[in-house]
Amino acid sequence: MFLGRVIGFVTATIKIPEFEGLKLLWVQPICRNGSPSGKAIVACDATQAGIGDRVFVVDSREAAFALPDHATPTDATIAGIVEYLEPSTDLESAK
């Protein structure tokens, strides 16, 4: 799992049936101080997150377990929207 910030989204009409109805969001992985760490990825959303939200992402095979269908072929899923970190180390103020 890692922290990230939602920076955009992707739309697709032609997709595998398992992805029907899923939101696909661009997530930039971040450190606890909000600075980017590594390359942005696309994640399925299990939380109704929006652009600018600070989130946490489950990766690997376990990513599917955050969605209703545990056999979804996703390798990254947003599993929660972060309210705050304690101690607060974010350079920007939370969300």
């Binding site: 955009g8 989204f9 992707v10 739309t11 697709a12 009409t13 032609i14 992805f19 661009w26 652009i51």
Partner: peptide, 13 residues
Amino acid sequence: VIVAIVDSCTIGN
């Protein structure tokens, strides 16, 4: 595995 053909990609607005 390829799971989707992308129609659009949006960053910010």
